[in-house]
Simulated assay, not measured.
Amino acid sequence: VDVEGGVARAVVTDEGSYPADLVVLGLGVRPNSDLARDAGLRIGATKGIEVDDTMRTSTHEHVYAAGDCIQTRNRVTGHPMAIALGTHANRQGRVAGTNIGGRPARFDGVLGTAVTKIGDCEIGRTGLSTRDAEEAGFSIETTVLESSVKAGYYPDAGQIAVKLLTEKQTQRMLGAQIVGTAGSAKRIDVLATAIWSQLTAAEFASVDISYAPPFSPAFDAVTLAARKAAGR
């Protein structure tokens, strides 16, 4: 990053320099599991502590682990993954505490559902990305749909774009991303619910979701994306 006067001015790569008003670094994180390894706990392929669905560690029946340090299960692929999100950590901690307290509880995996905001742009994601799906061996169809966050005639009807990934053979929904103006990002939650429940695009297109002009067009962008993916 080329910095001038304490302000980022450009991103410099092997292929050239790219002027920028804002530079966002998405570096990712890795579990800090050194203490657990030194204590004799088994560390999984993702470098996170290996636990079962009750948050019990795989090698010590009286030791539980939760949060950013553990390896969890991707609900779509069934494969192990490590992902650092506060939503997961809170749920995992609750499951661990409930089991330690003598009541049964299970953690059923993750989709990696997350939202963020950069300036006036809202972003949401859930399930598999295109690269995730291809690496997991899925044959996928990609659908992109652009619409508005409110009825088109309503004041300040900003734009929203939805990307939906479906399995080619079954139309099962595998992943989704959303980008748009105010009111866009939290729509990812209804898509997460559909992916969690293993709905197909056609099934989701028929789900009874709400409508009023201040909140969406008569057919919301997520419904339109599912209809397009289902070929309707």
Rank of each mutant, 00 (worst) to 15 (best):
R73D: 00
K47H: 13
T13N: 05
A66Y: 01
T72W: 01
Y64H: 11
R30T: 11
C69D: 01
R37P: 05
S58K: 14
L27A: 14
R37S: 14
G16K: 07
H62D: 15
L22S: 08
T13H: 06
R42F: 03
E61K: 15
V29N: 03
D53R: 14
T57M: 04
A45N: 10
A10Y: 09
P31W: 01
D38Q: 13
G40A: 09
D52N: 15
I43V: 13
L35A: 12
Q71S: 11
D14A: 13
D34K: 14
R30F: 09
G26L: 07
S17Q: 13
G48Q: 03
G26H: 06
T59K: 05
E61Q: 15
I49C: 07
S33I: 06
E61Y: 12
N32H: 11
D34A: 15
G40F: 04
I43D: 04
R9C: 08
D14Y: 03
T59M: 00
A39D: 00
E15V: 12
D53F: 08
H60A: 15
S58Q: 11
R73Q: 09
D34S: 13
G44N: 06
A45V: 15
Y64R: 08
L35C: 05
H60L: 10
T57R: 01
A39Y: 00
M55A: 09
V11A: 07
L22C: 06
L22W: 04
G48P: 01
P31A: 01
T46D: 02
L35I: 14
V63W: 00
R30M: 09
T13W: 06
A20C: 12
T13S: 12
Y18L: 10
I70D: 02
